[in-house]
Design a protein around this nucleic acid. Structure first.
Lengths: 188, 188
DNA sequence: TTAATTCCGCTACCGCCGTTGCGGAAATGC
DNA sequence: GCATTTCCGCAACGGCGGTAGCGGAATTAA
């Protein structure tokens, strides 16, 4: 399986991502320099650029590791699944510095490949939640005139908008209010 | 009214914002350099930095001029006002390159002052729409269990999310579906 | 006219992102 | 052992954002 030449140092990737993480937490995206990340990882800067084409994609790779750890196993109960879905996104957004989320969004809009990556991370969850909403509509738990996929846009969009534009906090109360506004009061 | 010393060249501001606009349209945010803007405006780079503290705020000033031109005069009819509100945002987002919107969002998240500026641009409209929604709820046109301000988050957020993250188009059909999903079918 | 004041253009500089080229290190195939 | 191939570290560089300092230009006050 090994190629012809010198094999890649297996530890480099993890060391760099780790260093990027600590530098990010300590200084934020703008003040984090690739040179310092390289130094902290004990690696030449060029080695970093050989694996990730830009600072944004390096950080993107770091984030992918983080967000892929957010659990999500749908139960079939719309209210429960919706709450978990929204809370999961809120938690993921909370685990990452706000400025970084903003930069990722910017990177996603600028670099199609990054955008595709971010979307793929959540595509399956979106599909599950869309189905949960459709089921809730069919069961008469909520108005049936809205497109489930658009409701997903609205749920996720509200979180991003609040975090990035209005700057207001995304606390459990907000998450609850969001789901409550979508599904309405509990029906026994 | 004139101060003691040499007065500010009145034409500089307009020339710089104009140059920034054309450079932005031609090259996008990243490839637009302040040096070139200065050259095109016939102005020293330092003069630009004396008026705007950063590239982001320079572009922000440019955008403020643009978006402040989007008209909005509420009629009192919820469906009409909601449609105009959403369509107005969609139009504003459409008039600006997507990458620029993303960078502005990033700048808003990073630089509180920029965020305050953007929010102030829309604060009054948000208030009007919130009241329109509250009125619609009171009149029984839509479910009353949702917080109007959160509905505004969801409407605006869906637009941003679609534009910046999913990359899907914001066409009149989507705007219509968004309002329809919020207010439900027309009631004669 | 002269001094004080404010603005402007110019040059130089720093730090950072990202690239290029080169020599050496670590593996494989003969 | 030896050539080949791939990876790595190193040094240098260009371009950009942003800053500092200086000399001169334009204005007001005396």
């Amino acid at each position: 399986m090994a190629g012809r030449g010198r094999p890649r140092d297996a530890g480099v990737e993890a060391r760099v991502l780790d260093a990027a993480m600590t530098e990010m937490r300590a200084r934020g995206y703008d003040e984090m320099s690739v040179d310092r990340v390289a130094e902290r990882a004990g690696v030449a800067k060029t080695t970093i650029y050989r694996r990730w084409p830009s600072k944004a994609e390096l950080v993107m790779a770091m984030i992918t590791e983080l967000t892929s750890a957010v659990p999500f196993d749908p139960s079939g109960d719309p209210r429960r699944d919706l709450s978990e879905f929204v809370a999961g996104i809120a938690a993921a957004l909370d685990a990452i510095p706000t400025t970084l989320v903003a930069d990722l969004v910017a990177a996603a809009a600028r670099e199609p490949r990054v955008g595709v990556g971010v979307r793929a991370l959540w595509a399956d969850r979106h599909a599950v939640v869309s189905e949960a909403i459709a089921r809730a509509q069919a069961d008469g738990l909520m108005p049936a005139y809205a497109d489930p996929r658009i409701i997903v846009d609205q749920l996720v969009g509200a979180l991003y908008y609040r975090l990035l534009v209005t700057g207001e906090p995304i606390d459990p109360a907000y998450v609850r209010a969001l789901v409550f506004g979508t599904l309405g009061p509990e029906q026994s």
